[in-house]
Simulated assay, not measured.
Amino acid sequence: MRIAVVTDSTAYLTDEQCEKYSIYRLPLSIAMGNETIEETKMDSTSFFEKVKTMDGLPTSSQPAIGQASLLFNELSKKYDAVISIHLSSELSGTFNTIASLSKIYEGLAIYPYDSGISCSAQGYFVLEAARMARENASVEEIFQKFEKMQQTLRAYFVVDDLNHLVRGGRLSNGSAIIGSLLKIKPILHFEDKKITVFEKIRTKKKALKRIEQLLSEDVEKGYPIVATIIHANVEQEAIEWMKTLKKHHPAIRYELSYFGPVIGTHLGEGALGLTWMEDQTKI
């Protein structure tokens, strides 16, 4: 069976990765004033600079169902099935749209997957699916691998301003109020596909140290790890953090990524995150 791998733009894979592994992308969009832009057509630096000039925050929107249908029409000419991997269904309606389309679409078997997360963590599933599809794995085998990957997947991040998450409806109001009053830098994570507070920390420096500690706990379990530092327009800060992590855990395979416009809308500039899991390339 010839299987195509589709994802959305919030996996923030590079053009080179998509070309190398034949990965297809459905772009989410950003509305900035009267202008709506596909996030693949705007770099993060330009996005955050433009946000500073706006009175309100941008809003994000999922790919149109017609856009998805056009892509699947093209894929049906070359493939028998599609595995479509998307950001958490609690952050966007993208997964549900593709799931609905899969029930009525004819001529191509569509298998949607809710990663329950986003950004590079979502990208781990996409890259592994593409690798396995090349090796002629079945849809069932790929989904079984996803289940195994979820067991070691971790993702933690720190934001400079909780109000972005609250105004976008991605975090409870109570958490933001506490954060504002106490000037804390809570560590956030995904729980049941939702962004929630993992721990409340007083400073960003201490929050990053705590995330390092969580990484160390998994390193001690003995399996190979890939870890990705993700930043919202603070690349130098992310590079410095990576240098620190490499000193403590040189055996880990490190990658650097970013929070693009759609996720950056909810997290705000200055956010830093770290995601990791068992390194599938070393199993």
Rank of each mutant, 00 (worst) to 15 (best):
R2T: 14
V6D: 00
T7V: 10
E16L: 08
Q17M: 10
K20F: 07
Y21D: 15
I23G: 00
L28E: 10
L28I: 10
S29T: 11
I30N: 02
N34T: 15
N34R: 13
E35T: 14
I37S: 07
I37F: 09
E39D: 14
T40G: 12
K41F: 10
M42D: 04
T45P: 02
T45S: 15
F48L: 02
K50S: 13
K52V: 04
K52H: 11
T53S: 12
L57G: 04
A64Q: 13
S69K: 14
L71C: 07
L71T: 05
L75T: 02
A81R: 12
I83T: 02
S89G: 10
T97V: 13
K103L: 11
E106H: 12
L108I: 09
A109P: 05
P112H: 06
Y113D: 00
D114S: 08
C119M: 14
V126K: 06
V126W: 01
L127R: 01
E128V: 15
A130Y: 03
S138G: 09
I142R: 01
F143L: 15
K145A: 13
M149K: 11
M149D: 10
Q150A: 12
T152P: 01
Y156K: 04
F157I: 06
G168N: 04
G169N: 10
S172K: 15
S172T: 14
I177A: 14
G179T: 05
S180W: 07
I187M: 01
E199Y: 02
E199P: 01
K200G: 08
K205S: 15
K205R: 13
I211A: 02
V219G: 01
K221M: 08
P224G: 01
I229R: 02
I229H: 02
A232I: 01
A232E: 06
V234G: 03
Q236C: 10
I239P: 04
E255N: 14
Y258A: 11
Y258G: 01
Y258S: 13
G260Q: 07
P261G: 07
H266N: 09
L272S: 02
L274Q: 05
L274R: 03
W276P: 00
E278L: 05
T281W: 12
T281G: 02
